[in-house]
Design a protein around this nucleic acid. Sequence first.
DNA 1: GGATTATTTGGACGATAGTACAAATATGGT
DNA 2: ACCATATTTGTACTATCGTCCAAATAATCC
Lengths: 234, 234
Amino acid sequence: MKAAAGTRKPNMREAILAAAEELFSTYGFNAVSVRDIAQAAGANPGSVTYHFRTKDGLLLEIYRRHCGPMNRRRSELLAAARRVRDLQDRLEAIVRAYVLPAFTSGSDLAGGGTRFTRLRAIMSAEGNEVVRKIIAQTFDDTSHAFIDAIHESLPHIPRTDLVWRSHFLLGALYYTLVTPERVSRLSRGSADGTDAGHAIEELVRATVAALQAAPLDEGAPRKIPGANPGRVVT
Amino acid sequence: MKAAAGTRKPNMREAILAAAEELFSTYGFNAVSVRDIAQAAGANPGSVTYHFRTKDGLLLEIYRRHCGPMNRRRSELLAAARRVRDLQDRLEAIVRAYVLPAFTSGSDLAGGGTRFTRLRAIMSAEGNEVVRKIIAQTFDDTSHAFIDAIHESLPHIPRTDLVWRSHFLLGALYYTLVTPERVSRLSRGSADGTDAGHAIEELVRATVAALQAAPLDEGAPRKIPGANPGRVVT
DNA sequence: GGATTATTTGGACGATAGTACAAATATGGT
DNA sequence: ACCATATTTGTACTATCGTCCAAATAATCC
């Protein structure tokens, strides 16, 4: 019944992983079915169950595939950034070391890092339980290391503020990758979403400025006449 | 068969809307079933179909409920912010006018605005088609108005950069509401997620600084010895 | 080349999804 | 009190979900 029986996929497992990664990062985990993935990979739904017992197991394997190389790349870039003499330049290098691996994964081909980061963004929004554990035990170490490095470059700013601003950086990064068309729609139809280089530079520039801002409690460096920084309405 | 037949919900439609809003904003649209919503609202699944023909219709009604008041509030605050004399203070007021209504909706009770913004964050990540149309035709006007106002306060910065930085603001705002526990976990277990006031102030401070940063093309105000702002690897 | 293992296949299972619909019940006007 | 309307209920329908399983097929090793 099959036409060319000899033309098998050399590694179906990889094809399934790639298809799942692409679909999950585009439509989210819950919106994609195992059958969707199998069809996109040219496989049988049963094959997915064979290689990765469950749908969660498939997601888990995707994370395992990327977390290692990405964090390794981040550590390398962070170590190099720490050696930069000028404090201002060092801060920028640190931020770049955090952002860059999110766009270019060391493992696979073009757009691999972007795709995985987009997946992480969607998963953090959907609040998947399987992912929460991986995030907590894998990325928090990296985040701490980066915040420590940032704090060394900006010793006069309380750590709490730096945590907030790093948090904002991650949110901005996620949102940029999740909505690739929004920026070009708001500005003008200049570049398509593949112009990751420009996005990175804009993000780095904005983040460095945000990190350097005066902390909240210091009343001195700003005047603040009318605006009261107190509690919100609630 | 029913115990107290007289104790009916005074307005079941509202109860369904509230339950759907809470569940959608917590678990995402796809992960929540109509039956889940009905059960949480103490209603029958058929009642959901009666009031809002489909699940999409229910989501649509939630957006209709909030978009009006929130954008109206934003316009009011923006108009007030435009009247601030000092350029620096005006910029901060503009950012605050954008952020504040995302935390406190004018329509319903405590956490209403936060809940709806969290919903918007999840929906933008999941890429729902119904929502995409509402966003495009409802929020882009508001976004344009804010960017125009920001551009008036920062005339020397190209509009493209301001668009990017406003984009980052929205991403940071979304991510902060989607992961309410992450910040307290990274810093220290100080305050629970309900401390929206502090989050707003941190976000405003960081955003104002980011908006004021020197644009990318100007090579003058920074030195940039080793870092090349060129294209990414790809 | 035959035996053993690894992989793929197609179909099936129970569970649950969104939605539809008729009957039952509550509500409001007169 | 009665009727018309609005709402709620219970159930049923079809589709699809994740997962499982035995048979078929490909790959590997002696």
